[in-house]
């Protein structure tokens, strides 16, 4: 079995991309999750440049430059987000940020990992979503005028 240069390049890109996916799915450290996303971008960049050479025009390279730009934006935003998240919980563990889920579900804690106890920070005043399909809790309204 042989492969052309283009194909070998694409295989490397795909491998890098998949490794990035696996890292994104398995790691619990917020920063490593972001790094894995960057890894996926690398895989894509290799593909783009390989095609650029295959076709012999600069389009792929131009796209790579855009990827680079967006990656820089993403990194900056992600880091500032991670910093402010870190400030609230003093940890980079992604398990502490499972609040997007349904309220009454237990906090997801992986297969082998011991359950994580989330210590609620009283200073944190985040908006709460109503669980889907539930009546929102209403304040007892003001008495009707008597």
């Amino acid at each position: 079995m042989t492969a052309t240069v283009l194909e070998s390049q694409l295989i490397v890109g795909a491998t890098l991309f998949i490794l990035g996916v696996i890292g994104f799915l398995t790691r619990r450290n917020l920063i490593l999750i972001m790094l894995s996303a960057e890894l996926m971008l690398h895989g894509v960049s290799i593909n783009l440049t390989a095609f650029s050479r295959y076709h012999g025009n600069p389009q792929g390279q131009v796209f790579t430059i855009f990827v680079l730009t967006i990656a820089a934006c993403e990194a900056g935003l992600a880091l500032s987000l991670i910093l402010s998240l870190y400030q609230r919980r003093k940890s980079l563990d992604v398990f502490l940020w499972g609040k997007l889920g349904e309220d009454d579900l237990p906090v997801f804690s992986g297969s082998q990992a011991p359950p994580v106890t989330v210590t609620a920070d009283p200073n944190v005043d985040l908006p709460h979503l109503t669980p889907a399909g539930r009546m929102p809790k209403t304040q007892p309204g003001p008495q009707t005028k008597t």
């Binding site: 998949i18 996916v21 696996i22 799915l25 619990r28 940890s91 992604v94 992986g110 082998q112 990992a113």
Partner: peptide
């Protein structure tokens, strides 16, 4: 730290990833 030593469902993620690959 402890959470860096406990990946989330590594088997499932690896198998899924390599199927994709």
């Amino acid at each position: 730290t402890s959470y860096d030593q406990q990946p989330i469902q590594p088997l499932m993620a690896s198998v899924g990833g390599f199927i994709l690959l």
